[in-house]
């Protein structure tokens, strides 16, 4: 049993990542406000980034800036491959956020509200049948 608890707490970064992921998921699914949904989306994305960066981290390592001195002294450094993936993903996340926010502004111009239920109601009143 103690062995099991130690195993669970040794990987605490992954547990925190899953907790953040579920907080963001709650924001996306349960909140009615569209900007709150975008905030939840951002939190979800950051949780996934945290998972990937935790995969590359090394105990008592340094940043992956390789120098002849560092190799000679036998230091270890973090795996740089997840860093490169996440660097790209951060830029993509900002782009998706910007597109989502522009759509929110357009919906506010059209319907005068940013609450999802009111937008669905007003689009029904306008005779749109897909909802």
């Amino acid at each position: 049993m103690e062995w099991f608890i130690a195993k669970i707490f040794a990987k605490y970064n992954y547990w925190i990542s899953i907790i953040l992921m579920m907080i963001g998921f709650y924001g996306i699914v349960a909140k009615d406000n569209l900007i709150k949904k975008i905030i939840g989306l951002n939190i979800f994305q950051t949780a996934i980034f945290l998972y990937f960066i935790s995969l590359g981290a090394v105990k008592a390592g340094t940043a992956p800036i390789v120098d002849a001195e560092i190799i000679r002294k036998g230091y270890v450094y973090a795996n740089p491959l997840p860093h490169v993936l996440i660097l790209t993903a951060i830029v993509v996340s900002v782009a998706t956020t910007a597109v989502a926010l522009s759509l929110v502004i357009r919906m506010h111009q059209e319907y005068g509200t940013i609450e999802e239920s009111e937008i669905i109601e007003k689009s029904r009143d306008k005779g749109m049948t897909w909802t």
Binding site: N13, F49, I53, S54, G56, A57, V58, G61, T62, A63, P64, Y77, A78, P82, H83, I86, L87, I90, V91
Partner: peptide
């Protein structure tokens, strides 16, 4: 977590 490049981009 030793990833300074991701840190300053974020």
């Amino acid at each position: 977590l030793q990833s300074v490049d991701v840190g300053f981009t974020e």
